[in-house]
Computed example of a mutant assay.
Amino acid sequence: MNATPAERVAVILRDEFAAHGVRLPDIRADLGDPHQPQLELGTVPLGTGFALLRVLTDYQRLLKAERARSERRG
C-alpha cells in the first residue's frame, strides 16, 4: 500500500528530528478527512518543543522561498 502525502510528511519530520538527535515518540497522519489530513503529535518534551519550533520555522522559510521562486518563473 502506498503512503499518502501526509504519511510521508510524518516520516520526513520524524527523520528530520532524528538527524537533530531528537526522538518524537508519536507522530502520525490523521487521515479521517482525506481532503484535509492532519499531523498529530503525541506528548512533546520541552527540549523537543524547541527543536520542533526550529525545524518548522526552517520548513516555513523554505516553503516561502520556493513559492517566491515559483512565482518568478510563472
Rank of each mutant, 00 (worst) to 15 (best):
V11F: 03
A65H: 09
I27F: 13
L41E: 01
L52G: 01
F17T: 06
T57Q: 11
G42S: 14
G47L: 14
E66Q: 12
L39P: 13
A18P: 00
D58L: 10
T43G: 10
R72L: 05
R14C: 08
V55D: 11
V11S: 05
A51Q: 08
V55R: 12
V9W: 14
G21C: 06
R14G: 03
G74N: 07
R14M: 10
A51S: 12
A19G: 12
L62Y: 05
Y59Q: 15
N2Q: 09
R61K: 13
A19D: 14
G42M: 09
K64F: 13
E16I: 01
A3E: 08
P5N: 00
L52F: 12
R28F: 02
R8Y: 05
A3K: 15
E7I: 04
A6E: 08
T4S: 10
A19S: 10
R67H: 10
T43Q: 09
L53N: 07
Q36S: 06
K64M: 07
P37H: 09
M1E: 07
L46I: 05
R54K: 14
D33C: 04
L41T: 12
V9K: 08
R54A: 15
V22N: 00
Q36A: 06
Q38N: 12
F17R: 03
F50V: 09
R8P: 09
Q38S: 13
R72V: 08
L56I: 06
K64C: 11
A51W: 03
V22C: 04
P25W: 13
M1A: 12
K64E: 15
N2E: 14
L39R: 08
D58R: 12
H20N: 11
L52V: 06
E40P: 00
T4N: 04
A10F: 01
V11K: 15
L39M: 11
D30S: 12
A6R: 07
Q60E: 12
T57I: 01
V44K: 07
V55K: 07
P37C: 00
V44D: 11
P25I: 09
G21L: 00
A51P: 06
E66C: 04
D30M: 00
